[in-house]
C-alpha cells in the first residue's frame, strides 16, 4: 500500500465507523446511505491510487473498484478472492455479476450521479423540490438490509475495507 492509499484508507475506515455508529442509533436511511456511499467511493479511490496516479475526482465510484479489482493478475486475484471470502477468483467474478445492480445503485445515489432524483443529501428535484431525503424510504436501503444479496454486499464492503492491505 502506498502513502496515498494509506491516507485514503484511513478516511474510508472512519467513514465506515461513522456509518456503523449511526446505524446503531437508528439514524434515518439517508444519513446511513450517505456515509455508505462515501465509504465505497473512497474505497474505490484508495484502490485506484495503487497506480501511483490520482484518480479523477468524479466517476470513480464503487463499480470502478469492482471492475479494476477483477482485472488483477491471476495469482494476485487468487489471494484477493480468498481474503474477501471466496474460494476461487471465478466465484468472486460470478458474485460481482449478481450484485452489480446494487453496486450501481450505491454509486449512483450520490447527488452528482442521481440525475435530480432520490439522493441522500439534498431535496429533489432541485428546481422545484417535492421530496426531502430525511423523510424518504430508499428502495436501495431496503434491498441492502433485507435481501441476501444486499447483506452479502454489505459484508463484502466491510471485508474490502478491513482487509484493504490484502488487495491494495
Amino acid at each position: 500500500m502506498n502513502a496515498a492509499q494509506t491516507l485514503w484508507w484511513e478516511q474510508v475506515k472512519s467513514d465506515l465507523a461513522i456509518f456503523v455508529q449511526l446505524k446503531r442509533t437508528g439514524a434515518p436511511q439517508c444519513h446511513l446511505l450517505h456515509y455508505l456511499q462515501m465509504a465505497t467511493e473512497k474505497l474505490s479511490k484508495a484502490y485506484l491510487w495503487r497506480s501511483g496516479k490520482p484518480p479523477p475526482k468524479t466517476h470513480t465510484g464503487f463499480v470502478r473498484f469492482l471492475k479494476a479489482l477483477l482485472d488483477r493478475r491471476a495469482p494476485e486475484l487468487e489471494r484477493i478472492a480468498r481474503a474477501l471470502g471466496f474460494k476461487r477468483p471465478a466465484d468472486l467474478n460470478a458474485w460481482v455479476v449478481t450484485v452489480q445492480g446494487l453496486a450501481y445503485g450505491l454509486q449512483n445515489i450520490a447527488p452528482a450521479e442521481a440525475k435530480n432524483g432520490p439522493n441522500p443529501e439534498y431535496p429533489w428535484p432541485h428546481e422545484a423540490p417535492s421530496h426531502t431525503p430525511v423523510h424518504h424510504s430508499f428502495a436501495l436501503w431496503t434491498e441492502l438490509m433485507e435481501t441476501g444479496r444486499g447483506r452479502g454486499l454489505m459484508g463484502f464492503i466491510e471485508r474490502s475495507i478491513g482487509r484493504f492491505a490484502s488487495l491494495a
Partner: peptide, 18 residues
C-alpha cells in the same frame, strides 16, 4: 448506459499489473 454524465470525463488507470 449506467453512468451519469460529467462535463469532462477522464481516463482511469485501473492499476492492473505493476
Amino acid at each position: 448506459r449506467m453512468i451519469a454524465e460529467t462535463d469532462d470525463p477522464e481516463p482511469i488507470d485501473f492499476g492492473v499489473d505493476i
